[in-house]
Simulated scan of single mutants.
Amino acid sequence: MGRVMTILWLLLIGVILGAGYIRLAPSDPAEWHVAPQGETDRDFKGGILRVVQTGPDGLARFDAIARVAPRTKVLAGSVEEGMITYISRTKVIGFPDYTTAQQDGDNLRIHGRLRFGRKDFGVNKARVDGWLGQM
């Protein structure tokens, strides 16, 4: 029984440390604040790419929506710069997802992706498509 309890305690400590790392790991703008690449909409296991014709003010309108979204903050960039990367975190564990939006003439390119894991279960698609729907 003592050995089972030791294993359970070690597992619990591992889960707590893993959750702490996920929530507190630094986000390097050099790694995540990169221009979205692509000319057409695509869905991936870990994210999405959207290319939307919005007119020249698309990034400003997108930014206004993203900034008021729950658990979302700006990692880097600005409307004036023409590109912004946001971090959105899940409610319980705080898994970070990154969304980069870039104005390219009348087109807005948006790349939403996860940081941890291989599959996001459609979370980035729902978030980005929801924000676009509000525009």
Results as ranks from 00 to 15, higher is better:
G2E: 10
V4W: 15
V4N: 13
V4Q: 15
T6C: 09
T6Y: 13
W9M: 14
L10W: 13
L11M: 15
L11N: 08
L12Y: 02
I13W: 06
G14R: 10
V15T: 14
G18W: 06
G20F: 01
Y21L: 07
I22V: 15
I22A: 07
I22N: 05
L24E: 01
P26I: 01
E31T: 13
W32Y: 15
W32A: 06
H33T: 04
H33K: 09
V34M: 03
G38M: 06
G38C: 02
D41R: 13
D41P: 09
R42K: 15
R42T: 12
D43S: 08
K45M: 12
G46M: 08
L49D: 03
R50E: 03
V51A: 12
V51G: 15
V52S: 11
V52R: 12
Q53T: 15
P56Q: 12
P56V: 11
P56G: 07
P56N: 08
D57K: 14
A60G: 10
R61T: 11
D63P: 02
D63E: 13
A64K: 11
A64T: 05
A64F: 01
R67Q: 15
R67M: 07
R67F: 04
V68T: 14
V68A: 03
V68D: 09
A69D: 06
P70Y: 05
R71Y: 01
K73D: 14
K73A: 08
V74R: 05
G77S: 05
S78E: 04
S78R: 01
E81G: 09
M83T: 04
I84P: 01
I84V: 12
T85A: 10
I87Q: 03
R89Y: 03
T90P: 01
K91T: 03
K91M: 04
V92T: 12
F95M: 05
P96N: 02
T99D: 03
T100Q: 08
Q102F: 06
Q102N: 01
Q102C: 00
Q103G: 09
G105W: 09
G105R: 10
L108I: 12
I110C: 07
G112R: 03
L114H: 06
R115Y: 10
R115F: 10
K119N: 14
K119I: 12
F121T: 04
F121G: 06
V123I: 10
V123H: 09
N124H: 02
N124Q: 09
K125Y: 12
K125T: 10
K125F: 09
R127T: 09
Q134D: 08
